[in-house]
Amino acid sequence: MRIDHKLQRIQVDSFEISDELVYRFFISLPENERETALLRAIRIGVLATMEDRFSAFLSKTTDDLGVQLENLKLLFDMKQEIFHKTAIKGVAAENDILEFLETYIDNFHLGDVVSLSGTSKGLLKNNKTGDILAYVGGENSGKKVAIECKFDKSIKLGDVDSLDIASNKYDTAWSQLLETTVNRGANASIIVFDKTLADASIQRSVDGVSYIDNIGFICIIDYEASDYHNLAIAYNFARRLALRKDGKNIEVDFVNMLIQRLLKDIRDIQNIEMLVKNNIKNNLQILKNIEKSLLSIEFNQQYLMKYLEDGYLSKVDLLDFYQREEIRAKYKLISKEIESLGNE
């Protein structure tokens, strides 16, 4: 690649690219349109890189860049969705959950130590159940909370009432909790599901978080929205159970009642937050409309004064008045400034 500073051009003799997304886009175009589309794609890519907001930038393609680029946007969204659906089943989800727990522990100065354990064998022979292990109060405390991540639609609730000795063995939420506890020598265990992949039997029985006596906690998160507040509740209760010094029985109904109250409070806060954000958005739009009207008043007044002073408006004046390029440019700058207020 060469840069011609005199002509302000980029010169590329030849190049090849192996990318499924790019290939699908260009193969769908007639041959005589591909070169123009390539140049346009390069310009869009440069602008997106400069803005460093690729996803937000692509959301504008419908109005600004035409049907073909909207297809590119759809392909991008499709690849993003595929990424989430596949990554959710692997190490990526476990790493994200670990990162959340580390942040949560650090923010509340809990002193716990968490690490990935899903690749190492536990106490059971050839068994790796228990993806994350938390040492409550430090590695030498002897108190552990084990967490199993099961982003799999095949995992059912598996309570005692549904057991059938004639059926083949299969993993369930109950069995995985028990297995996690035993395999990692944990004092308490949590199994984590994603709301888009949890089986219907789990969705019906668990409203965000549920505690099963002597079994553990079932927790449903929204992975794609990075919403882990249910996990925070489950982990906080689990670590408290791990730290208990006596063997008194726990009132399961009371624990679940407290959990539901906490979930209700969190949902109320989320609803309030959404209302505040909507109000901010509406107020920003009001500010934009006010500024637009003020600019229009100033612009119209300018031409009114010109007409009153000169007694006429030339055709150039009329064209400028009609096209309003000057006021449009000013409004675009003011609009960006107002939008930036919402990001502060």
Rank of each mutant, 00 (worst) to 15 (best):
R204K: 09
R204N: 09
R204D: 11
V206K: 00
V206T: 01
D207G: 12
G208W: 02
G208T: 06
G208C: 08
G208K: 00
V209A: 07
V209P: 06
S210W: 06
S210P: 00
Y211I: 11
Y211S: 05
Y211A: 03
I212W: 13
I212G: 13
D213C: 06
D213W: 05
D213H: 12
D213K: 13
D213F: 12
N214C: 10
N214F: 10
N214H: 13
N214G: 14
N214A: 11
I215W: 08
G216V: 13
G216E: 12
G216Y: 12
F217N: 00
F217A: 00
F217V: 01
I218E: 09
I218Y: 04
I218S: 10
I218Q: 07
C219R: 00
C219L: 02
C219P: 04
I220K: 00
I221V: 12
I221L: 08
Y223G: 01
Y223K: 05
Y223E: 03
Y223Q: 02
E224R: 09
E224D: 15
E224P: 01
E224H: 07
A225F: 14
A225Q: 15
S226D: 13
S226T: 10
D227N: 15
D227E: 13
D227M: 10
D227H: 09
D227G: 11
D227Y: 09
Y228N: 00
Y228K: 03
H229S: 13
H229V: 12
N230I: 02
N230F: 00
L231M: 11
L231Q: 08
L231I: 09
A232I: 07
A232S: 14
A232D: 14
A232C: 13
A232P: 11
I233S: 07
I233F: 12
A234P: 08
A234Q: 09
A234W: 08
A234M: 10
A234R: 04
Y235L: 05
N236V: 00
N236G: 05
F237V: 02
F237E: 11
F237Q: 06
A238H: 09
A238P: 06
A238V: 02
A238D: 03
R239E: 10
R239G: 07
R240E: 15
L241W: 07
L241S: 03
L241R: 05
A242M: 09
A242D: 03
A242Q: 03
L243K: 14
L243P: 07
R244V: 07
R244M: 11
R244G: 06
R244F: 08
K245S: 04
K245W: 00
K245L: 07
D246M: 03
D246P: 04
D246K: 00
D246R: 02
G247E: 08
G247D: 08
G247Y: 11
G247P: 03
N249A: 12
I250P: 03
I250T: 01
I250E: 05
E251V: 09
E251I: 10
E251L: 09
V252S: 12
V252E: 15
D253K: 04
D253P: 01
D253E: 14
D253Y: 08
F254N: 14
F254L: 15
F254Q: 15
F254K: 12
V255T: 11
N256I: 00
N256T: 02
N256G: 03
N256W: 02
M257H: 14
M257G: 13
M257T: 14
M257A: 15
M257V: 04
